[in-house]
């Protein structure tokens, strides 16, 4: 075992962790907000918006994320309108393209997950809310969303973990996150096993933290599902 090499590799890879985390947190945050918009269109009752949302979900769930990322990074530059447009200084950045495609993709999956949660909300609880005079956004905010989010949480945790792993695809559009840096190290050292093992362990640790956080959230939202407190 070459401990000197391993520790040097680990330190180099750790330096790329902030980039991986930035890709992850930005895309989960933006994708989550986008998912709320799409699920609102999907279940809102307007047939045109609903059809658009269905199409969006189909396209982004049905095609490979890597191809979506290539299309955003290499594809958009083909259009003169975009090259001359006000967003070009942003869209020419590999990091921005990676975040954009990760967010667009997870929005499709998350929208479906949230829709499943909404469908699980008991119509009786919604009816009770209507009967005291709630409707529209108030009804969604106070009753439907909290119950639906709790139901959606286990599947959503899985999606979030998948997103952490999907950030590795950003290396293929020249973003220097953990996987990208690992490949660069291998191209210099030819020590595939050690470098990729180090990278895998870093992802495992990151996802362990994410899963713990999600489990904590789930626990704090499940008080009503646990056995009642035992009286002393």
């Amino acid at each position: 075992m070459d401990f000197a090499f391993l520790s040097e590799t680990t330190m180099t890879l750790l330096a790329a962790v902030p980039t991986t985390l930035a890709l992850f947190s930005l895309s989960v945050a933006i994708g989550g907000l986008l998912a709320l918009l799409i699920v609102w269109m999907r279940v809102g009752g307007n047939p045109v918006l609903s059809a658009f949302a269905k199409g969006y979900i189909f396209v982004f769930r049905g095609s490979p994320l890597l191809i979506q990322m290539f299309l955003v990074f290499y594809g958009l530059a083909q259009f003169k309108v975009i090259r001359d447009g006000p967003l070009w200084p942003l869209l020419r950045e590999p990091f921005v393209c990676a975040v954009l495609s990760l967010a667009l993709c997870t929005a499709g999956y998350s929208a479906e997950i949230f829709r499943g949660g909404i469908r699980s909300v008991s119509p009786r609880e919604i009816e009770a809310a209507r009967s005291i005079g709630m409707s529209g956004f108030l009804l969604v905010r106070r009753i439907i969303a909290p119950i639906a989010f709790r139901y959606a949480l286990p599947s959503y945790s899985t999606e979030v973990v998948l997103m952490m792993k999907s950030t590795s695809l950003a290396s293929l559009v020249t973003v220097w996150e953990v996987t990208g840096v690992a490949q660069r190290l291998i191209s210099h050292s030819y020590r595939t096993m050690e470098v990729f093992l180090c990278a895998a362990i870093i992802y495992l640790i990151l996802n362990f933290i994410v899963l713990q956080a999600m489990a904590l959230l789930e626990r704090s939202l499940s008080k009503h599902l646990r056995a009642p407190p035992v009286k002393p």
Binding site: S122, R124, E125, E127, A128, A129, R130, S131, I132, G133, M134, L138, R142, I143, P146, I147, R150, L221, H224
Partner: peptide
Amino acid sequence: RSELGMVFQSFNLWSHMTILQNIIEGPVHV
């Protein structure tokens, strides 16, 4: 609806709220 109190056959309490939260929900938010 806020002037008509409705009591349902299967109670229809909001499962994610405590009893007190269930009761103050309407007065506070509606």
